[in-house]
Nucleic acid binder design. Structure first.
Lengths: 218, 218
DNA sequence: CAATAAATTTAGACTTGTCTAAAAATATAC
DNA sequence: GTATATTTTTAGACAAGTCTAAATTTATTG
């Protein structure tokens, strides 16, 4: 079944807002995420329910069906593969690629997606460290830890972020907190939770608890 | 000014049907090319005329304005660059790429287009030999000759086709009449115009006048 | 050049996706 | 546990793009 661009965007939103399809999502949350109105969302939810892509009970929020989840995951796969392409091959900054990938993800061709993945070396994570599902929709099993949950003295490799705003990404870039860097947690300040890191065994940097929460290490 | 996908497709059609924007194009021709109805075309022509992208007088056909031509050329540029990407990098066959490029061409980002061009080595022609306009909309000046207009004994390099149907492309592929092959015209048959070629100084092949007309050499 | 044929445009309707405003259902608070 | 606030849905309208059928314009032809 071929979905419209709009339908794809709704499925993707629901997937992301529901923590990969587990919990129910509210109409208002979707409206907010898609910059549209609750009434528009209701209309679309009925349509997606008719197509058996979501489970929808009026006033009770929605979850994805197996079919809907499959579709959503394939969109996520396309999005993240294109992000890798844009950063690795076209040398865009990781803070510049989201909007372009948002367009590219809607190009419908399984052959294209699979060949692109091969061309990129079948990456398992995108430039933000978000996991790329494989052809069958499976995510590699990994255990990212947010920096604010590391113990003092322990080390890790920066492997992802859980906040994708351009300003945060640029902040990270500026302080050289990019993917692949080795960090060690030197100290956690009790009163505000800010943490002091040693980056690549050389540079010391103190960041807020808020920032630490959104940097993931492996 | 940002154009809708549909508007882009109309401009592209007009550009192609008008021999790169020179001659006037009929409503019916556009309807035919876009698989739509004449009445739909009329509606859209009014809209494009309102936006100063075409010159439109009812019943008199249309031509592109300078602005419309610029837009059309940028779509053609994107389309052909993506075709190069699909064939050179993802190893698609030249007969498989049109539909995918048709989708990719509508991704709106000048930065993407320019970086893609750089990544591909700023090619001047796509896998079918069609010229790729540069960033400023200029086509490289070349003089392709259709095989049916070659003189007996003369040689050339296959550099393009003027017919893009999948069946024709597959026919060429089967007979090894692909881009870059050296051919010599051995003989033209008077009564039906079919021509006998020597391919890469080794293999002889006779093709119809119809086929010869659509193979371009340099 | 009148009559027919072909091409084009208009009129009115339909679909998709959106919106505002009002109604209904659910959640919260005293 | 009733009143208020919040969330969600319904009702009706609108814009983009399309369609069919009818009307109009242009082209063709005897």
């Amino acid at each position: 079944m071929i979905l419209s661009l709009t339908e794809e965007n709704y499925l993707k939103s629901i997937f992301h807002l529901s923590d990969n399809g587990q919990t129910a999502v509210n109409t208002n949350h979707i409206a907010n995420q898609l910059n549209t109105r609750a009434s528009s969302v209701t209309d679309m939810l009925k349509k997606l329910a008719d197509k058996s892509l979501i489970n929808y009970q009026p006033y009770q929020g929605v979850t994805l069906t197996a079919e809907g989840r499959k579709k959503a995951i394939s969109i996520v796969r396309r999005h993240r593969l294109w992000e890798v392409f844009l950063v690795d091959k076209l040398h865009f900054g990781w803070d510049e690629v989201h909007d372009i990938a948002e367009q590219l993800e809607h190009v419908q061709s399984d052959a294209l997606t699979d060949r692109l993945a091969d061309f990129l070396g079948n990456p398992v994570a995108d430039p933000h460290g978000d996991l790329i599902p494989d052809k069958n929709g499976e995510f590699e099993q990994t255990k990212f830890i947010p920096v604010d949950q590391m113990s003092t003295g322990h080390t890790g490799i920066i492997s992802g972020v859980s906040e994708h705003s351009v300003s945060f990404l640029q902040y990270l870039q500026k302080h050289d907190l990019v993917l692949g860097k080795h960090i060690a947690l030197l100290e956690t300040t009790g009163f505000d939770g800010s943490v002091t890191l040693l980056i690549n065994q050389s540079k010391e940097l103190t960041i807020s608890k808020e920032a630490a929460k959104n940097i993931l290490v492996l």
